[in-house]
Structure formats: C-alpha cells, structure tokens
Design a protein around this nucleic acid. Sequence first.
DNA 1: CGTCTGACGATGC
DNA 2: GGCATCGCCAGAC
Length: 104
Amino acid sequence: MDPSFFQQVYRIVAQIPSGKVTTYGGIAKLLGRPTAARHVGFAMRCAPDGLPCHRVVNQAGDLAHQDVFGSQDFQRHLLASEGIAFHPSGRIDMKKHLWAGAGM
DNA sequence: CGTCTGACGATGC
DNA sequence: GGCATCGCCAGAC
C-alpha cells in the first residue's frame, strides 16, 4: 500500500482511544515526517466523517481550529465527556492523556 | 515544474 | 508562560 500522507493521518487518528489525545507532531512522527506536523492539521481540515479530530491537539495542549466545533467550549465539553482533564487556562492535561501510541 | 499555502514545532526574546 | 519568527514538507494551482 502506498496511501497518501492524508490517508495515513486518518488511519492514526482513527486509532486514538476515547479519553486520550495526541499531537499533530506525534502523528507526523509516526508517519516518518517529524516536521510535517502542519500536514496532519491540514488533513484534519479535510477530515472525513467519524474521525475524532477533536482528540488531536497541538503540542501546547491547546484546542485547535475551534471554528469547526462552533466554539472552544464545545470541543472542551466533548473531551471532558471522554475523561480528559483541562488546565485552568483551557488547555488539555497532555501529561495524563497523551496517547502513548503516538510514539511518546 | 515553480510558487503559495497551511487545524504546527522549535527556538528566541 | 506568552508572543514573534523561521523552518519544515506534502498538496493544490
């Protein structure tokens, strides 16, 4: 198989279990492109239905592209329902919920 | 094939 | 820790 980078990104994101989060860079690293973190987000932008893109955050643990989810509070609620803990600033506690499958 | 873009990462201040 | 800048690489045009 030689799927496109985007297709591989979708495969990784689809494997993220509930209650876990991963970073764009982490996914990119799994695909062998540690510097292609931006493309992971790019793939998310065109993410197909059923893809838990809300579990994918940047290295800072900040929720990205809040516009798609309507508001930052909405995505925060989704993750909170899955058991994700948040910092007072609204960032995710990646230390506890960072998906180990992302190579970290 | 050249250029621009982009839901990021790392570094510097 | 927050903000600004550079770099990175696969797609779209």
